[in-house]
Structures are given as structure tokens and as C-alpha cells.
Amino acid sequence: MSTVTEAPAATTGTSRGRGWRRYRSSTFYLFASPWIIGFVALTLMPIVYALGVSFTNYDGKSSFWRWVGFRNYVELITSDPSAMQSIVRTVLFTIIVVPLSVALGLVLAIMVNHRLRARGAFRAIFFLPSVVPVVATAIMFRLIFNRDAGLLNYLLSFFSDSKITWLADPYAFYVLIIMMLWGCGAGMVIILAALQDVPVELEEAAKIDGASSWRITRSIVIPLISPVLYFQVITGVIGTLQILVQPMLLAETSSIASSANVPQSTSLFMVEVYNEYFYNSRFGYGSAMLWVFFLFILTLTLVLQRLSKRFVFYQVESGNEE
């Protein structure tokens, strides 16, 4: 595999005849320039711009703004209890959702990795939710968790008489978790592919040694696919920490981009940021929140990467020259 990949590099610098070079840096940069320019202009610039704005009291409209130094950051850390609460809430939400989602994906993947009839159909059913646009997902969950006409309260009515207002505090938090878990099929597909790369011989050897299938899964399969699980955790954490649209759309009355109606229990950090920007017109303060968030994610990724060395098993493939 890698021989093919590496082949062009092997010929680098071999000049056949004078003045002819296979590769010129300028050609590479010419071809790569759309992405490089796009990255600088559309990703780097907004982030740096937000950093600049975070040191001002800019409100998004007026031209009367001034530098305020670190005042926004100081305010966020010392005197904004609701932002701090939302950080705690967001971290809690992530700690619940990500492991559950990866575990559920793993269980589903192990299930549909068996020789089943209509295996393809089952895989499609589990994967489909992760393709459904979020707007429709939110509508579906609002229907199921509707107080008066929802399916869940109907099922619960066999056990108790009280109706639960699911989409308000404190239950909205759990509804949001369930809605996130519904999309775990994306992870399932990735884990499934990893499962299929686990050498059959290893499993068979363990079986001959008398290992139970649970034991095989725990001691052979999971360690072998741990890089994939780890990757799922990283992307899951980054994705879940920045959730914004789902709580907004799940809120009972959602008119256009309404974050003001979001129940407190689902008012995650990004929702608070959004509110600061678009309801309180505090662009400076919102930008400071964003930067705290960026730094938090960066630190977390580095920490997770450190930790990974301890319990992620990286297989050294034989015959791979890289």
C-alpha cells in the first residue's frame, strides 16, 4: 500500500537531464492555494478577529467602541455565575453523552457484525438517524416528548397519572441527551469497519483457549480497535462541547434562531455565547467567551492525547514501510 503512496517521493530530486525537475514547489502551492487562502481568510481570520474583539466593548453596530483590556475575561471568570454554570452543565453533558454514544455505537457495531439476516438493512436503520438533518430531528423529538400528545407520556400514563413536561427544566437536559444518542450510528459504522479489520486468527485462537465471547471482546477486540474508539471520543468531545443548534431547535417555541427560549437546563455554553452576541449585543464579551472556549478545547485535546498513550493500543502493521 504505502509503496504506491511513497513512489513519487522516491523520484524527487532525480534530475533526468539538465534543467528538468519533476516537482517545483511553486506548482504545489499553486494547486494548494485555494485551500491555503481559504483557510487563512475564512478560518484563521475570524478566530484572530474574535481575539481582537474580545479586548473591546464592541456591540456589533455602533462605531463607539474602545479597548477594555482583559476586562471581559475578568468579568467572565469572576462575576458571571450563569456562564460558569453553563460551563459546568456543558462539561457534564459531554461527560454523559460522549462515553454513552461511543459505547452504544460499539454495542450496535458488535451486534451487526454478526452474521444476521438483513444485516444491511439493520445497519442502514442504525445509521440513518445520523444523516437526518437536525431541523427534522428536533421536530421528531418535540413530537415524542410533547407534553399532551407525545408518545412517551402516553406510555408513562399506564404507570402514573402525572404528565411530565419533558421539554422544560429539568427534563429538557435528558431529552437532549437522548436526541444526541439517537445519532450514534455514525460512530457505529466507523467502529464496524475497525471490527472487520481485527484478525480472525486472534479471535479463533482465544476461542480454542476457551475464552468466552465477552472475554474475547474485552481483551482482544476492544484493545485492538482502541485507536478508533479514542478518535471517536476526541471528535465527540469537540463536537458535543460546542452544541448550539440542537437546544435551540428543541426549545418548545422555536422561531428563527431563538435562543432566548432555551430552557436553562439545555442552555449550554455555546447557547450562552450566542445570547451574548445576538441578544445582548455584547460582541466583545461573547468573543472573550469564544476564546476561553478555544483555549479550553485546545488544552483538553492535548490532555486527551497525553492520556491516550497510556491506554490506546497502536498496532504496528507488518509490511508497512512507513
Binding site: 483557510f39 478566530i47 474574535a50 469537540i238 460546542q242 455565547v273
Partner: peptide, 23 residues
């Protein structure tokens, strides 16, 4: 540059969209 490309996939997109909106 390629490492950077892979790293950009980790950048929280929703979080960058808001300042992009301002720009």
C-alpha cells in the same frame, strides 16, 4: 501543511461561525 489540514478538521466549526458572521 498536511498536518495543518488534518488539524483543521478538529477546529470547532460552530464556534468559528459566529466571528465569521461578524466579518
Amino acid at each position: 501543511l498536511f498536518t495543518l489540514l488534518l488539524a483543521t478538521m478538529m477546529i470547532p466549526h460552530i464556534a468559528t461561525l459566529i466571528p465569521t458572521y461578524i466579518l
